[in-house]
Measured scan of single mutants.
Amino acid sequence: MTVLPKDIPGDSLKVTVGTANGKPGDTVTVPVTFADVAKMKNVGTCNFYLGYDASLLEVVSVDAGPIVKNAAVNFSSSASNGTISFLFLDNTITDELITADGVFANIKFKLKSVTAKTTTPVTFKDGGAFGDGTMSKIASVTKTNGSVTIDP
Rank of each mutant, 00 (worst) to 15 (best):
T2K: 07
V3F: 13
L4P: 12
P5D: 08
P5S: 07
K6G: 06
K6V: 12
D7K: 11
D7H: 13
D7M: 05
P9W: 10
G10Y: 07
D11Q: 11
S12H: 13
S12P: 11
S12E: 13
S12K: 08
L13T: 09
K14N: 09
K14T: 11
V15I: 06
V15C: 14
V17S: 09
G18N: 10
G18C: 14
G18Q: 11
T19I: 09
T19E: 14
N21T: 13
N21H: 12
G22C: 05
K23T: 12
P24K: 12
P24M: 06
G25K: 10
G25M: 14
D26P: 10
D26C: 13
D26K: 09
D26E: 09
T27L: 10
T27G: 08
V28E: 10
V28Y: 05
T29H: 10
V30I: 13
P31T: 12
P31E: 10
T33L: 12
F34Y: 09
F34C: 12
D36L: 12
V37A: 13
A38G: 14
A38L: 13
K39D: 11
M40S: 10
K41M: 14
N42R: 12
V43H: 05
V43E: 02
T45H: 00
T45W: 00
C46F: 07
N47T: 01
F48R: 01
Y49K: 00
Y52R: 08
D53H: 10
S55V: 14
S55M: 08
L57M: 12
E58C: 10
V59W: 09
V60F: 09
V60D: 12
V60C: 13
V60T: 11
S61N: 09
S61P: 07
S61M: 14
V62T: 12
V62Q: 07
V62G: 09
D63F: 07
A64V: 07
A64C: 14
A64M: 04
G65S: 10
G65I: 04
P66T: 14
I67T: 10
I67Q: 12
V68I: 11
V68G: 07
N70H: 13
N70M: 07
A71C: 11
A71P: 13
N74R: 00
F75R: 02
A79K: 15
S80K: 15
N81C: 15
T83Y: 15
S85D: 01
F86W: 01
L87T: 00
L87H: 04
F88R: 02
L89D: 00
D90A: 03
N91W: 03
I93R: 02
T94F: 15
T94I: 13
D95I: 03
D95E: 05
D95F: 01
L97C: 03
I98G: 01
I98A: 04
T99L: 05
A100D: 07
D101N: 09
D101S: 14
V103H: 06
F104P: 00
A105C: 13
I107C: 01
I107D: 02
I107Q: 00
I107T: 03
K108H: 03
F109S: 03
F109G: 00
F109A: 01
K110T: 03
K110P: 01
L111C: 06
L111F: 05
K112R: 05
S113L: 07
S113H: 07
T115Y: 03
K117H: 03
T118R: 10
T118C: 06
T119K: 14
T119W: 04
T120N: 09
V122G: 05
V122H: 05
V122D: 01
T123N: 08
T123E: 03
F124T: 02
K125Q: 02
K125L: 05
K125H: 03
K125V: 01
D126N: 15
D126M: 15
G127K: 15
G127W: 03
G128S: 02
G128L: 02
A129L: 01
A129K: 01
F130M: 04
G131C: 03
G133L: 03
G133P: 00
M135W: 01
S136Y: 15
K137A: 01
I138R: 01
I138W: 04
S140H: 08
S140K: 14
V141W: 01
V141H: 02
T142C: 03
T142G: 03
T142Q: 07
K143E: 04
K143G: 01
K143Y: 01
T144G: 07
T144P: 06
N145R: 08
S147Y: 04
S147M: 06
S147T: 06
V148I: 05
I150D: 14
I150A: 14
D151C: 15
P152R: 15
